[in-house]
Design a protein around this nucleic acid. Structure first.
Length: 548
RNA sequence: GGCCCGUUGGUCAAGCGGCUAAGACACCGCCCUUUCACGGCGGUAACGGGAGUUCGAUUCUCCCACGGGUCACCA
């Protein structure tokens, strides 16, 4: 009687029953084994690697099993919400090829289980909240922030455990008159769960990633509804994931401590909990110790960081897959061009511990990914990136698309493609010497080089250079120049007795390379010269000769 | 402090009672080579410690140490 009265007092406008609400959400009728999962980010405007790790896991599990992946926006914390965050969220997930079958979209909702924005589901939560009150499993609490702080301090002083429970739960056993009075005064209240658990009891639980777990029962009367009537994550999770027929919940393992409470909630509601996959955190090296990647301290946690640096989406994707499933790398090596969907993703391969995010490894993955792209693809990516992050370079780079594509074609496409590029932001430095706008002598000749020899070699080259020569004819001419100057044209002979020569054809090539590219290192010189053309080459050689 | 999770080379990681303890990245050396990159070959380098169970523990159990996470009207 008491409970029923309290329920009506607290939720006078709620008339529906949980059964009625439940019936409004259809069963999915998916085949056995089909996974239904979701991404449920909060719209803080900050999309990070963790989201991607979790999202990719859900995405693979659902789509690989013929299930459903949906997006639910957990906007229950109005204080943290950033305007436009939902849009950025959806856009950046799309950027990383996470496509939803259902859920929140920029234009609204898509699917039969909505609304997919939690603040719009307030009435739904209230039905379940009222039910819990009526069943004696929840009660209002009028504690102010100050009072809660006092409790915390008192617990600290007593060396007691923290939290609203037992003797500290001062509103747990109040009379209905007492509550009515507070309500009458218009005092704000939150709805708390009446926990019957005890920390003396252990519960056994099997997590799909962590395995068999032994956890301590929850004895804390957690908040279900905040004073604005919006649910906390916990309550929304239980209600929504039941109604939306989620079969698998993938989330970070920072949720493990509250898992006993969630399980308790499902039981109180009378629903079967989903299967859980708790993923270990992404760590980074901080000095000599590891720590979880943090929003505040680590810019590399944000997805925007990778976009700005110019990591191709595919590279970030590949790298995360290697972290998620340790056998992914081997599979990829065997199937360089296969779509990821052909890989058999398995949660059993997931590591229960947290892993260190290794930028060096990411770069390596990225180099491999880019080395397999066509020059056109690379050109498109670089142009798009530059347009946004380096407009000056974009102008130069896109002035003559065929020229730029030809540059990118050097050493691309064979069995052993060059792997010079890890991120788009490095392309400018890689190609700059092809453009007069950027060309300059970056590396100087080694001290030991004889300036007269350099000049003689360069001049001889200019006289004999013919763009119609094929690679062999071209190099034969360079060899001839080497010979004429007392430099070995045969490297073997030179290595046998370096003292017999002034140097080798390698040195002569280097004289040319510096003059033409401004650097000691470059891609294949013949290709470079073919692209540059006789006029530019001769001009550059003349310029450097006059400065010698 | 309570609770929980974790611990194989510098890093990511295979392993699931018996192995010379895979592989990848990074690093070093050699080879190829007009430079660089690619590629090939090779090398350095690991089961946190202590008890037990067992004929035998990296694998199982317990304790310790260390690392991480969590204890909000945030998710």
């Amino acid at each position: 009687m008491y409970n029923k009265k309290l329920a009506d007092l607290l939720f006078p406008n709620v008339t529906k029953t949980p059964e009625e609400v439940d019936a409004e959400f259809p069963l999915r009728g998916l085949p056995e084994g089909a996974v239904v999962s979701r991404m449920a980010p909060s719209p803080t405007g900050f999309v990070h690697l963790g989201n991607l790790v979790q999202g990719l896991t859900s995405e693979r599990m659902t789509h690989q099993s013929g299930g459903v992946l949906f997006l639910r926006v957990e906007d229950t914390d109005a204080k943290r919400e950033v305007p436009g965050a939902v849009e950025t969220l959806i856009e950046s997930l799309a950027h990383y090829n996470i496509v939803f079958d259902e859920g929140a979209t920029i234009d609204g909702d898509n699917g039969a289980f909505g609304p997919y924005r939690q603040r719009q589901r307030k009435d739904i939560y209230h039905v379940f909240a009222k039910h819990l009150v009526a069943e004696g499993m929840a009660y209002p609490c009028f504690c102010t922030e100050e009072e809660l702080e006092e409790i915390h301090k008192a617990q600290e002083a007593e060396k007691a455990n923290f939290g609203y429970f037992g003797k500290w739960a001062k509103w747990r056993g109040r009379s209905i008159e007492n509550i009515e009075e507070m309500l009458g005064k218009g005092m704000p209240w939150v709805l708390r769960f009446r926990s019957e658990g005890s920390i003396e009891n252990k519960i056994k639980f099997t997590d799909l990633i962590k395995g068999n777990l032994e956890l301590t029962e929850n004895d804390i009367d957690h908040v279900l509804l905040k004073s604005d009537g919006i649910p906390t994550y916990h309550f929304a999770h239980a209600v929504d994931d039941h109604l939306m027929r989620t079969t698998h919940v993938v989330r970070g393992d920072e949720w493990l401590p509250t898992l006993p409470f969630h399980l308790q909630l499902f039981r109180a509601l009378g629903y079967k909990p989903p299967k859980y996959l708790h993923i270990g955190p992404l760590m980074k090296m901080d000095g000599t110790s590891k720590r979880k990647l943090s929003k505040r301290k680590d810019p590399e946690l944000a997805l925007t960081y990778y976009k700005a640096e110019g990591y191709p989406v595919e590279a970030v994707y590949e790298y995360i897959m290697t972290i998620l499933n340790s056998n992914y790398e081997d599979w990829r090596r065997a199937n360089p061009y296969a779509p990821t969907s052909e890989f058999k993703f398995s949660y059993k391969k997931m590591n229960p511990a947290g892993s260190l995010f290794d930028v060096a490894k990411l770069r390596d993955v990225s180099k491999n990914v880019i080395s397999l792209m066509s020059a056109e693809q690379v050109y498109d990516y670089v142009s798009a990136w530059a347009l946004e992050y380096d407009p000056d370079f974009a102008k130069v780079f896109t002035k003559d698309p065929d020229f730029s594509k030809a540059i990118l074609s050097i050493g691309r496409g064979g069995k052993k493609p060059r792997k010079d590029i890890a991120v788009w932001s490095e392309v400018k430095a890689y190609v700059s010497f092809f453009f007069d706008e950027y060309f300059r002598i970056e590396d100087s000749y080694p001290e030991a080089s004889d300036k007269a020899d350099i000049k003689a070699a360069l001049e001889a080259f200019c006289e004999s250079f013919d763009t119609n020569d094929d690679m062999n004819a071209w190099f034969d001419k360079i060899k001839a120049i080497a010979d004429s100057l007392g430099y070995a044209s045969d490297m073997k002979a030179y290595k046998n007795d370096p003292t017999a020569f002034r140097g080798s054809v390698a040195d002569v090539s280097m004289f040319l390379r510096v003059a033409v590219t401004g650097r000691l290192n470059s891609p294949d010189m013949y290709s470079v010269m073919q692209l540059l053309g006789a006029e530019k080459i001769k001009q550059r050689i003349a310029d450097i000769c006059s400065s010698l």
